[in-house]
Nucleic acid binder design. Structure first.
Lengths: 109, 109
DNA sequence: ACAGACATATGTGTTTTACCTATACTGGCC
DNA sequence: GGCCAGTATAGGTAAAACACATATGTCTGT
């Protein structure tokens, strides 16, 4: 699809996990709260979570206590928290950039 | 590199070409005006221009008149103009989404 | 004659994204 | 008891996007 802005899933996961530990499927359900456009692919979401874990940005364990299917609960590490802070800075800059773009767009009509 | 917002080159080309026809190398030089972070790969920029042309979003021809090395000058088509308008709408939504994200980020400190 | 800036272009490997399939547990319904 | 839908995690794979490198040719200044 054309005219989409991407790369928003990773910071969304980090922000949601800063608030409290969640498992993958819950993250999938909550991401729309943050205004992410289009559906997030669940397969890629699990892969992303595992790669974040490999890099020490999140930590997980199986939650044997919870009812229902086996759930892996993720929580943010101190490193992950730092990455979220860097994402927030990047997003502030991105918002400014978009503003500059739109001002110039609106000048030409 | 982590914590970057991407996918900004295509709308930038369309916006610059709406203002006036330019050739690839000029586009490369002007993109930073729009606040795009990081350097844009020149090879991919030429490829993107040709794929935009294949889709009828821009039109080009060799400018034999201009001095210096052979230059291919691009101009925006009506279709390209429409795509730019859709990009502008998408970017307005993206800016709002970033705002929502940052509000929630700042709530948690 | 050579170096450096201008200009376009291709090759290629990696990362990201989209789409599809597989597996398994649980609850409600008939 | 059998079935289905919803919950939950995960892998396979092809396409698209991106980064990095190389090739080719023109023109300007020294």
């Amino acid at each position: 699809m054309r005219a989409r802005v991407e790369r928003f899933v990773e910071p969304s996961l980090l922000l949601l996990l800063r608030e409290r530990p969640l498992h993958g499927y819950e993250l999938l359900e909550r991401i729309p709260e943050l205004g992410v456009e289009g559906r997030v692919d669940i397969g890629n979401l699990y892969r992303l979570l595992r790669s974040l874990e490999d890099e020490g940005l999140v930590r997980s364990e199986w939650s044997a206590d919870l009812p229902g299917p086996a759930k892996r609960t993720y929580e943010l590490t101190a490193e992950g928290r730092k990455l979220l802070d860097r994402w927030a800075e990047a997003l502030v800059r991105a918002r400014d950039t978009i503003g500059t773009f739109l001002d110039r767009y609106n000048e030409g009509r």
